[in-house]
Amino acid sequence: MNKDKLETLLNCLPPFADTAGDPEWETVRRELESDEALKARFERERALDRAIASKLKTAPAPADLRAAILAGRETPARQPFSTTPAGLAIAAMLALLLISWGALTFFDRSSGQPAAAQASAGFLGDLTSFFDRTPDYDYFSRNLTDLRRQVEARGGPDTSDIPSRMSEARGYRCRLFDWEGRRVALICMERLEGNFHLFIVEGDDFVPLDRGNEPRFTQMDNWNFAAWGSSGRTFILGTRGSRGDLENLF
């Protein structure tokens, strides 16, 4: 074994590795015994590696992280609706939206109109199928501008006319998906008040939801929603925060 290779291997020896019985290290050990200078340097380096490793392993993890992880696993792993905690939150939000839309369609807008009812039912069914899948996200960034750029670069809806105050929020992640031939974007944002989930659908005839050019607010259990239309697109913003939190974004 040449000296360069020997030094490289020594440099890669894990700080507390037990190499007894490992043929590769037996060879290294033998070579090392015949080079006093290299042996002395290796021992100094190893002492340093061990000091670094020992010290790093004492760096504390947040005290409440363990509880948060355990609390986040509310759904058994192999149930069909199983997904990440964040995914569950988004799925729950969209499920509540779904119920809200269904109620609006059936009872407020189109009661007695079978076609509208069927459309809502179909929408409901499609959306439920989507929820059954894990919502893996396409892109993660703390920069909302990055997320918007990614959405548009991947053929998603134009995001240029989201309210300016919303643009000040911190980004989190986004996902694009196809829905009956349309591109739909889900952009998640963070503010001090909590998380906000913006659902953008290309077209104003797609979602059977009561909306206008100005946001219309709906509350459902712990969720508050705002829905509005702009430039032929439908926007739905949801949060577990208050209606006031939503209004602050417009």
């Binding site: 992880i69 986040g72 792993a77 199983s82 997904t83």
Partner: peptide, 16 residues
């Protein structure tokens, strides 16, 4: 924190 939580969430989904 998020990465650690996400890792365990992945385990809950796919560890089986």
């Amino acid at each position: 924190w998020d990465l650690t939580q996400q890792t365990f969430s992945r385990w809950a989904e796919k560890g089986h």
